[in-house]
Design a protein around this nucleic acid. Structure first.
Length: 176
DNA sequence: GTTAAGATTCCG
DNA sequence: GGAATCTTAACG
């Protein structure tokens, strides 16, 4: 008997370095505009942690763009990158602490831009609450995901210290 | 108002 | 290796 329960605030109101690996193996659930519901297993994420993290958008401080990261955990942060790709993030921690998890992979889909395309995420989902949305939420599973870590992708500008943090979390391929 | 650069992807 | 494509933030 598998219970698929929607994740609640207590899951997201923790440090991003705890939430990020815990999201591996969880189900990203999407009710598409036509009403069809699909569930995707989260397989790869990255953590962005506060104003001091030079790779985190919040290192620029509180702006209209980063304001959502300062809200309490459980909201969606979506932004457009390179003029063509929307990237999907989940905000973590209590109000006032700007952190977020970037969803880099689901099922066999690799790459955060492709994730948003498959799940049909765009800027209108920015600031949406995962607890109140009828379109997007995350469900718990009984999967205990094994994973390994690596450095985050595409943040050479963040300087040696931050760019070398092993804050990318990748679920191991399941072998039966 | 102008401009540089980006948590990327796809094509050649 | 480079283009595509546009928002944000920094600067004037």
């Amino acid at each position: 008997m598998t219970l698929n329960l929607k994740l609640t605030p207590d899951f997201f109101l923790r440090d991003v370095l705890l939430v990020a690996p815990d999201l591996l193996g969880k189900q990203l659930v999407r009710r598409f505009p036509d009403g069809l519901i699909k569930k995707f297993t989260i397989t790869e994420v990255e953590a962005y942690r506060g104003e001091e993290d030079l790779a985190c958008h919040a290192s620029k401080g509180r702006t209209s763009r980063t304001e959502v990261m300062y809200q309490s955990g459980g909201r969606i942060y979506v932004y457009l990158i390179y003029g063509m790709h929307y990237l999907l993030n989940f905000v973590t921690e209590r109000e006032g602490i700007p952190q977020a998890v970037l969803i880099r992979g689901i099922d066999d889909i690799k790459g955060p831009g492709r994730v948003s395309k498959i799940v049909a995420i765009d800027k209108k989902h920015n600031r949406t609450s995962l607890f109140e949305s009828e379109e997007i939420w995350v469900e718990d599973t009984e999967i205990h995901a094994e994973y390994f870590t690596d450095v985050r992708v595409g943040i050479d500008y963040a300087g040696d210290y931050w760019k070398n943090k092993p804050w990318r979390f990748i679920m191991n391929w399941q072998r039966e």
